[in-house]
Design a binder for these strands. Structure first.
Ligand code: FES
Ligand code: FES
Lengths: 148, 148
DNA sequence: GTTATTTCGGTATTAAAATACCACAATATT
DNA sequence: AATATTGTGGTATTTTAATACCGAAATAAC
């Protein structure tokens, strides 16, 4: 049992954390509260949030009552920008080997680059507001847990 | 710079080795000759060929004049069967996290499972004969090197 | 200004994957 | 029979990524 589409844990956590913050766009969220909301390790999340902060996707404030806020309007933050803040620019895969057998034209590029392009389009075409709107209640985590 | 479509080195080598053998379907190929043809490490290739043998994709013969041959007609070997011999069955990704934020419906499943399905269809729809036919000369590696 | 809280960033540990190695079994050649 | 060749499979090493940890910096509250 294997999968072809692979996303790092860090990228997945970044997307989920961004979505969580998009639900309450103007409130400060501490790393701890987000980690609890997502039930992921606080250590891992801290690194992710740091990178999102450096990328300008979230603003961070230190000290008591500090935390993280979305830097822009959720509708202006694409999933792609969050993904790329973690993984770097998403570029189409050229070729794995580039060997004589391939005879110039790549055996797999049709598959690999298509997949990358499709993924990029998907991520670029959705923003945090879109995704938040698609959720059941649109309120807090508690609401969802009740509804779930 | 990152990629979304990821294939292990082993799977890539398996596909390339299978293609190499498909070019001369009835000849014995030693692990060494294939490794040289692909310019990959002999150690890595040996493991790959072993798994292809266990999966019944190639037949192996030991001793002098031994080596590997495609067990079936190239047209009867899909790229998927080669891939799955190495990686295991290719199944659609369900979800990375499955957390309350996701509100029951997965944030990313539309992307991840689509990618997996697309990849599976691509790999299932092409066999070794198809790919070999798409190559320039269709002959030996030497032919391609001359032509390239 | 002291203390508690929270992010920052570097480092260390752990886990997983890839890669290499080696002694063994099988078989063709002599 | 002896020898050389070739795949087998288990193990060990290396590389890489994921994860955890901890002191330091910043800031709000008292
Ligand atoms: S390198 Fe051979 S198919 Fe791309
Ligand atoms: S687990 Fe949250 S989107 Fe799939």
């Amino acid at each position: 049992m294997s999968h072809f589409a692979k996303m790092s844990e860090a990228a997945s956590v970044a997307l989920h954390a961004a979505l969580l913050m998009a639900k309450k766009p103007r409130e400060l969220h501490t790393a701890r509260s987000i980690a609890e909301g997502l039930t992921v390790s606080e250590a891992t999340l801290a690194k992710v949030l740091q990178r999102l902060a450096r990328a300008g996707i979230v603003d961070s404030t230190r000290g008591p009552k500090g935390g993280f806020v979305l830097a822009k309007n959720p509708a202006d933050v694409t999933l792609l920008s969050v993904y790329e803040a973690i993984e770097g620019t998403l570029t189409p895969t050229r070729c794995l080997l580039s060997r004589p057998v391939c005879g110039g034209e790549c055996l797999l590029s049709a598959l690999l680059s298509d997949v990358d392009v499709q993924a990029r389009n998907f991520l670029a075409g959705k923003n945090l507001a879109d995704v938040a709107a698609a959720l059941p209640v649109g309120g807090s985590i508690e609401d969802i847990e009740k509804a779930g």
